[in-house]
Nucleic acid binder design. Structure first.
Length: 285
DNA sequence: CCTTAATCCTGGAAGC
DNA sequence: TGCTTCCAGGATTAAG
């Protein structure tokens, strides 16, 4: 479900609600969604909530403490995950079989990790440094921070389809099926164009357009297709601004030709083969 | 290297 | 109404 704009929206709404609060206890309803330390910040104060790509981290700077402490929890929402801040009086955490982890905050507030499909997960680390040196080290630069040079270098090293490369979190972190289709349409680049044939000015355009689209999506609170909500339970509004995602067969907003649907990198892909086809040809010689 | 398919799961929507 | 089939925002793995 959640790509960078949705995860950033969760980060902001979550941080606003939990920053500076102590975690009294942690309840684990499904231990198999947790990897690494299962202490999960118990007894710690949440100082910051960080994001890289589609992943979040709840971080306690911590004071002096024993070496076994867990001061950093990484959360990946996968397809159907959510992090919500609720009051225990109106939460059904114990009866909802999809709530897997509950962090108890002061005054009856709780943070719930809910994930019906369980493609997401929770990872406990000693501290932020350990997360950065291990799990997050494998991620490419964040999609909002990557430079044209970094992107161009990454793309130039692979012959895969451009869309497949942009979906690869090792190359650039944060893009998923929705925003890649929107990005490629906005830049008039075809999803099947070989990544290594993307020219420097096109990389520049990709970076500029990525920042523009993701920023607008964040401003709208992300895209809600079915069940995405932020930490306060609010839906996003950017889905009404999608130009191509999930619009196969509808007329291209630019030229009117019906949008084409295909499968690229195993994902349903929508593009305008008139507006975006030229980009394949221009790069091929 | 590269791509594709299968896999992890649940639930909503569409088809009959 | 009910049953079946397909599909989904992600990411890894095995197979070809």
């Amino acid at each position: 479900m959640p790509e960078l704009p949705e995860v950033e929206t969760v980060r902001r709404t979550l941080e606003a609600a939990v920053r500076g609060k102590h975690i009294a206890s942690v309840r684990l309803y499904r231990a198999d969604v947790v990897r690494g330390s299962d202490t999960l910040l118990a007894g710690e104060r949440i100082d910051r909530v960080e994001r890289k790509g589609k992943q979040l981290a709840l971080i306690s700077e911590g004071g002096r403490q024993s070496g076994a402490a867990c001061r950093c929890v990484c959360v990946h929402l996968g397809m159907s995950g959510s992090l919500r801040v609720v009051h225990r009086s109106d939460s059904d955490a114990t009866s909802d079989k999809h709530v897997h982890v509950v962090w108890e905050l002061p005054d009856g507030m709780q943070v719930l990790f809910r994930d019906p499909r369980r493609f997401g997960g929770v990872w406990g680390f000693a501290d932020e440094a350990e997360l950065l040196e291990t799990r997050w080290k494998k991620l490419g630069p964040d999609a909002l921070l990557i430079t044209p040079k970094q992107l161009h270098t990454g793309l130039s090293r692979t012959k895969r389809a451009l869309k497949a490369a942009l979906l690869d979190q090792h190359l650039v972190a944060g893009l998923g099926n929705i925003y890649v289709d929107e990005l490629l349409y906005a830049t008039k680049l075809h999803p099947l164009k070989p990544a290594s044939e993307v020219a420097r000015p096109e990389s520049q355009r990709l970076v500029r357009t990525t920042r523009r689209i993701l920023s607008r999506a964040i401003k709208a609170g992300g895209s809600t297709l079915r069940d995405y909500v932020d930490a306060q339970g609010q839906s996003g509004g950017f889905q009404t601004q999608h130009k191509v995602y999930s619009r196969g067969g509808e007329p291209c907003p630019s030229c009117g030709k019906p949008l084409d649907t295909m499968v690229v990198a195993g994902r349903t892909t929508t593009a305008c083969d008139r507006c975006q086809l030229g980009a394949i040809l221009s790069g091929e010689r």
